[in-house]
């Protein structure tokens, strides 16, 4: 259940639209289903009142959309940013990917988003509608007469359970109260995998990655992946866009994707959210984050504008690649 309401957001937005502060609004609208929320650009108060949505499925991080949208509108575009989105926002500014002057950022609090896969685990398929009902989500399905009540806490997305910050690191205006950076347990799962034997890890990833259909949704949604010409679009790269032919291609894609955002990934979790195959991709990114923290000191991408990403930086005292395995590694 979100503390801030849709009506508050619409009211604020309509006011800013009508006084000319902004000329467009990047917000959420309903997709095919109640849980399938799609980013949309709103330009009129009518459109906003009718189609704007704010609920537990508004996970989409809009930062990346600014790269394209700031070039398309006259005047400023309003963007809603949840705390984790603000890190991506800063990271994109660091990389000069959009013009800050063209954006009016409204920070909004977030109580955690729901993961539809978890909802389906409880209520099954055939969901026709989902409504917020206090602490619960009221889920109606094709097969049951009475709607099921599911506690929002039980179906919270993994990235929200392990939320790293309720604090906004960028905004022009804040709605509601700001929170704090949180000591989360987000590296626990990485540590669990690290503690396995190489054989077990290999089996784990073989199982996960073999489901990949190379839809590229993970790349497309990632706010750190904003190259105009992506290596995965180049037919001569040997990793061009097509379904993986074998397990080598699966691994190749995933290693390269994760490596390209290493040091710049803010751990926003969009990659795992959009994956239709529920592959826990963020674990690859978190592995890089955890390593970078351990090798080169704590670093949070996007915490401030202008910080230098660890992999485009160095010191003369850095550890040697061979030494990374001598850190009291279980399988060393």
């Amino acid at each position: 259940m979100q503390k801030i309401t849709k009506d508050q957001l619409v009211e604020k937005t309509v006011a800013l639209l009508s006084d000319g502060t902004v000329s467009a609004v990047l917000g959420w609208s309903r997709g095919e289903f109640d849980y399938d929320i799609t980013p949309a650009v709103f330009k009129t108060a009518e459109d906003l009142k009718e189609n704007f949505v704010w609920n537990d499925f508004c996970g989409a991080n809009f930062s990346k959309y600014l790269v394209a949208q700031t070039g398309k509108v006259e005047g400023k575009i309003l963007v809603f940013l949840k705390p984790c989105d603000t890190y991506s926002f800063n990271q994109l500014l660091t990389e000069h990917r959009f013009d800050r002057e063209k954006v009016y950022a409204v920070g909004i609090p977030c109580e955690g988003m729901a993961d539809i896969a978890k909802v389906k685990e409880i209520v099954g398929d055939g969901i026709v509608s989902i409504e917020a009902d206090g602490e619960n989500l009221k889920v109606s399905t094709l097969y049951e007469d009475a709607p099921a009540l599911v506690n929002a806490k039980d179906v919270m997305a993994e990235r929200c359970v392990n939320c790293k910050s309720k604090k906004h690191v960028a905004y022009d205006e804040l709605m509601g109260d700001d929170g704090e950076v949180i000591e989360s347990n987000r590296f626990d799962e990485v540590a669990r995998l690290e503690a396995m034997t190489p054989d077990e890890r290999f089996a784990f990833w073989q199982n996960e990655l073999s489901r990949c259909i190379r839809c590229n949704a993970c790349r497309d949604a990632c706010p750190a992946c904003t190259c105009e010409k992506c290596v995965f679009d180049n037919p001569a790269s040997s990793v061009e866009n097509k379904a993986p032919a074998n397990s080598f291609e699966e691994k190749m894609f995933h290693i390269i994707r994760a490596f390209h955002v290493a040091g710049r990934c803010t751990d926003c979790g969009e990659c795992s959210r959009v994956c239709p195959q529920n592959i826990p991709l963020h674990l690859l990114n978190r592995k890089f984050i955890k390593d970078i923290n351990e090798f080169y000191g704590e670093y949070q991408a996007g915490a401030e504008v202008g910080s230098r990403a660890p992999l485009v930086d160095y010191t003369t005292e850095d550890l040697e690649p061979g030494e990374v395995f001598d850190r009291g590694d279980k399988d060393a």
């Binding site: 290693i255 690859l284 890089f288 090798f295 040697e320 990374v324 395995f325």
Partner: peptide
């Protein structure tokens, strides 16, 4: 250093 550690992570 980052890449080798990732390869190890993948088993």
């Amino acid at each position: 250093a980052a890449l080798f550690s990732m390869l190890d992570f993948l088993g």
